[in-house]
Design a protein around this nucleic acid. Structure first.
Lengths: 349, 349
DNA sequence: ATGAAAGCGCTAACAA
DNA sequence: TTGTTAGCGCTTTCAT
């Protein structure tokens, strides 16, 4: 009889091969300590001989742990979110856990469907960038989860991890000032976005500390896109007085758009206009000049999110909100106005 | 007794609630036709009332179908692969299937570990961009799978989907010639890469058709990186004769690097040098001038890969190798030399 | 330290 | 059309 043909070996095959019982094999596999040297040895050999591989479906069914985690992000195609997913995936792999990835496209319907899929797959927990304002689905999600991203702040009682916007903006402001840009203009995101308020608050605080009236600073609202940034810069250019223009854009896409507007106006960056971005997307490195920007630690956010989630699953105390620090990447789009002869910083990529 | 508290409802709860047997519920859920109106109705109501959600673990265990697919790509952080993953994910979702995503970093060890994870998760099939030359692991993978990417061609007997390099290169050559670049130089990938040979073969064929001796064309080898492209362009610049230089780079990163070299040499693109890329990465849109390039259909590759895989799983005839057509994206890095006064093409992004 | 046996939630014969 | 029953491969008491 070829009952073993074309059939993946089970714990029973291993047990027979090793001359022990199912339970002994299971115990060895689970790393139990109450096992004799001899038994462990024979089981390991039998595992190797049969080519046995644990069936996570069966394990999950019995133990209630699927060994699966889910992550729902807006779009895996967006470099920031790809970084988050990558970090999460790597950290999960360290724990021998696999990751189910879903893109919601900021669509509440898709989000709901993905969450259902996660529940049906019996994931042990989920990392979610929430899009739905109606949080009923999530609140009764019935599964451990942690939020990621700034929109997560809407739900104060859920632990979450995101970038430290306040620290990042302060970093940007300090850099701007240290390079002599003491009256920067701003291109902000849409008023509806939570991140915008936090951004502005930090700017205000910073200004107050330096005895500057924030009302003096030019501000433009824009969509978080290249086109939005471009249009905003055109407006800024139109109403600028004499003198040098410095711009702090609330994301890199808008900053890149602003750079285009500068070029199309026959001006150049950083000779006539300086631009500081925010995000750290790879494309900023290829622009000319390279975009000076503040990088959000996407990968680390994913890593920490998994750590939090694993803690949550294990029933360990909640983390509350975790803010990851951002860092400045100096490239060529921001001039150093403090140099005696307005010298430009080396414009690398 | 609160035996229902904190416990997800099972098919049995639904059956009790509906006053039918487990099997009837299962049949309704599976969409069987031999079900009375009445029974179906009551089951559906019971499902809604209990908040029942199918346990895919249990389904998978019994039926041998986990409802999971796996994808192993080099790096989810790379825009091309992110596109592939996104396409695969979307298509899988249409079939109510979830996707396990892994990044191999072109590391055979990691690849092997990911494949093991896939087997243990009992995925129904896998989409793989193979890195291991030693294919033993894969050949006895014991699971339906399809390869993606050009490296997949090494394994002729496995069905795979990738971009149509021959069509793409021909498209590029035709565009070059139609714009008056009849003696382009090339920046190619490393000699070890399979894609390189295919690229060159098409170039040769094209030249032969036009009675051009391919040996006349300048060619440089480089790593598939910005630095590689930059160095290659510097060499090209050093040995160029008089006259206009046109370059066809075998990937966008190298093309972008080449653009940097041009700028640093005090030359400008496309006034002094024209550059054509290959890949269609987003960063090309932000470079200045925008990079004219040939776009690989990353998303579609993912979509098709899932289609193939599903066919393979269903035991339907194999697809062999599927080649997806690429398309030209015109931006500003390629001059139109045929215009009376060497007029540049509008340099959009 | 080890084995026997029960059962996780579901599907798939087999009966009725 | 519907119900009964026997597992899928594993973990986990409970004995021994």
């Amino acid at each position: 009889m070829d009952k073993s043909r074309n059939r993946r070996p089970t714990i029973i095959d291993v047990a027979e091969h090793a001359g022990v019982s199912k339970s002994t094999v299971a115990r060895v596999l689970a790393g139990s300590s109450s096992i004799s040297e001899d038994a462990r040895d024979r089981v390991m050999k039998a595992v190797a001989a049969t080519g046995y591989e644990r069936n996570h479906l069966a394990v999950g069914m019995r133990s209630g742990r699927s060994g699966l985690l889910g992550i729902v992000i807006p779009d895996i195609t967006n470099p920031f979110w790809a970084g988050v997913a990558r970090g999460a995936q790597d950290r999960a792999a360290e724990h021998n856990i696999s990751l189910l990835v879903f893109s919601s496209d900021w669509d509440a319907g898709k989000e709901a469907r993905h969450l259902r899929a996660l529940r049906q797959a019996r994931v042990d927990g989920a990392i979610i960038n929430p899009v739905a304002d109606n949080f009923d689905d999530l609140s009764r999600f019935g599964l451990p989860f942690v939020f990621i991203g700034s929109s997560a702040e809407r739900f104060s009682d859920v632990s979450s991890v995101g970038s430290d916007i306040a620290q990042a903006v302060r970093l940007g402001m300090e850099h701007l000032f240290s390079r002599g840009h003491t009256r920067p203009a701003f291109i902000l995101g849409p008023r509806s976005r939570l991140a915008r308020a936090r951004f502005l608050r930090t700017v205000h605080d910073f200004c107050v500390e330096r005895d500057i009236d924030p009302a003096v600073l030019a501000m433009e609202d824009a969509e978080y896109t290249v086109e939005g940034g471009k249009a905003a810069m055109e407006r800024l250019l139109a109403r600028r007085g004499r003198g040098y223009l410095s711009v702090f854009a609330a994301n890199d896409l808008m900053a890149l758009g602003a750079m285009m507007a500068v070029r199309e106006a026959g001006l150049s960056c950083p000779e006539d206009v300086s631009i500081l971005g925010f995000d750290g997307i790879p494309a900023g490195a290829f622009a000319w000049p390279g975009l000076t920007t503040i990088e959000k630690p996407s990968r680390e956010i994913g890593v920490r999110a998994v750590d939090c989630l694993l803690d949550e699953i294990a029933g360990r105390p909640e983390h509350g909100r975790v803010y990851m620090p951002c860092r400045l990447i100096e490239r060529g789009s921001l001039a150093d106005l403090t140099a005696t002869a307005p010298k430009m910083v080396a414009a690398g990529r």
